[in-house]
Amino acid sequence: MIPRPDADSEDRVIFLRDAKFTYESGVEALKGVTLVIDKGEYLAVVGGNGSGKTTLAKHLNGLLRPTGGQVLVMGVQASTRTVAELARVVGYVFQNPDHQLFCRTVHDEVSFGPANIGLDGPEVKRRADRAIAVMNLSDIRDRPPLSLTLGLRRRVSIASVIAMEPQVLVLDEPTTGLDAREADELMAIIRRLNDEGTTIVLITHEMKLVAEHANRVVVMMDGKVVLDSDTRGAFSDLGLLRRSKLLPPPVTQLAHRLSQIGVSKDILTPQELVFELTRGDDQ
């Protein structure tokens, strides 16, 4: 069933109805995707390489326009708005931070977006300062962003997007190339943003991140949404994940192997498995 666009629903930030997209080369990247994203959600879009997840994400801020179907952002047809207008509502952080950074200092870099959307000086400064504080970059605000480590460059690129104070933040593979600690720090910051009310759309094929952070999972395969459920539900069907070229976190795989001794299959974290196993002992 295709849900109807509901203008008076204030919670609905993004609505895709049967969105189709074909590249000029003739590759059909989206074959009719219907998706509703509500305010404050922490949504993970997962899928193998070439499943269409990045193409989908690029529709959310108008970088790509659907060749069929509709994309509504805050109840407005995205195709009637420029990318610059949509950027105020939907922030998109690219996978490679080096594709965004060019300024002399971190502060200049973070101010670029707010200045582009036509805010006045004090407001630009306020937003930039806030974004720098949120991403823990205050110590290095006057350093040239290109000379920082990858983890810090990634944080600068996220700061430069959230400085526009978008309601939705799209993150494309934010942890690629980061070591475990950098990744944990980054994900904690994103968690905090979500707690403060920003809707997060995480594009990834790293299922461990999904298990630990997202509260809803959309699995894409071959330009279609094959599964849309809460996180726990997404991990109960290993066959589907495998067909989508995804690998569940080891702890979930272990839980599936242990299911014959009564462990439930929807284990997402080691803590849950420990709880499940020790509870088993009590019985």
Partner: peptide, 8 residues
């Protein structure tokens, strides 16, 4: 100018 500054 920009590139010399960001890559000293």
């Amino acid at each position: 100018h920009y590139v010399k500054q960001s890559m000293p």
